[in-house]
Computed example of a mutant assay.
Amino acid sequence: MDARQILEKYYEYANAGDWDRWCDLFADDQVMDEQLAGHIEGLEVLRSMMKGMGTMYRVFRNEPVHFLVDGEKAAAVSHLSAVSPTGETIEAEVMNFFRIADGKITYMANYHDTVPFQVLSQG
């Protein structure tokens, strides 16, 4: 898969709640700087974290708005809509940066407004 196809699958799998296949898009030695979860190194650590994703949200949609691809670097602008298990809604604009090598995501960082996610810590 090329970088654009990987981005398309990233959002397709996330929106389907298919976190195993979503994790398969990442390299074994991946590094992620996730704005809420922090610095994550290694695919197995990421897989372990994502096992709880299905219970964290009643609804989770991260719809891509725009992709920018430049060789092995890519960025995606998206809109996230989610509903917590207790019914609080989350709406946030998101920007993700990716480095992709040999058909796998080796690095990802995401940036978004953290205020909408505060409902999770209050619930």
Rank of each mutant, 00 (worst) to 15 (best):
L120R: 08
V115Y: 15
K9W: 07
T114G: 11
V77H: 04
I6M: 03
T89K: 08
L43I: 12
P116A: 09
A37C: 09
I105S: 02
G123P: 15
S81F: 00
A74P: 03
Y13W: 14
G17Y: 09
W19Y: 15
L46N: 00
M49K: 12
M53R: 13
R99I: 04
L46D: 02
A101E: 14
G71M: 11
H39I: 11
M49D: 06
D70F: 05
G42H: 08
P116T: 09
V65N: 00
N62E: 01
A76I: 04
I90R: 04
M108A: 12
M49F: 14
R61W: 09
N110W: 08
S81K: 00
Y57C: 11
G54A: 08
Y57H: 12
I100C: 01
L25Y: 02
V45R: 12
H39A: 13
P85Q: 06
T86C: 01
Q5K: 12
V45F: 08
G123W: 01
E12R: 08
Y11K: 02
H112K: 01
Y107R: 08
A76H: 03
H79G: 01
N96Y: 02
V65H: 00
D29S: 10
M32K: 02
F117A: 14
A92S: 14
E88I: 02
D24K: 10
M1S: 08
H39W: 09
R99W: 01
R47Y: 02
T89G: 05
R21W: 14
F60H: 13
A74R: 00
A109E: 06
A3I: 06
K73G: 07
I90Q: 04
A76Y: 04
T86L: 02
Y111Q: 02
G38R: 09
V65I: 06
T55R: 13
M1A: 11
T55I: 07
F60R: 01
S84A: 09
D113H: 03
F67M: 05
E91M: 03
I6A: 01
S84K: 00
R58T: 07
R47D: 11
D24R: 05
L46R: 01
D113I: 11
E34M: 03
D102F: 01
G71R: 03
I105M: 07
A16Q: 15
D33W: 07
D18R: 10
A14M: 14
P64V: 10
D2L: 01
G17I: 12
I100L: 03
C23M: 07
M1E: 07
G52T: 07
S121W: 09
V59P: 10
G38K: 09
A37Y: 02
E63Q: 12
D20N: 15
Q35Y: 07
P85R: 03
G38M: 13
A37N: 09
E72P: 15
K51P: 01
A101P: 05
G123I: 12
R21S: 15
N96V: 00
V65C: 00
R21I: 04
V94C: 06
Y57N: 06
S81R: 00
H112P: 12
A82Y: 04
L25E: 08
S78G: 14
T89R: 10
F67R: 02
E93R: 02
E41V: 13
G71D: 07
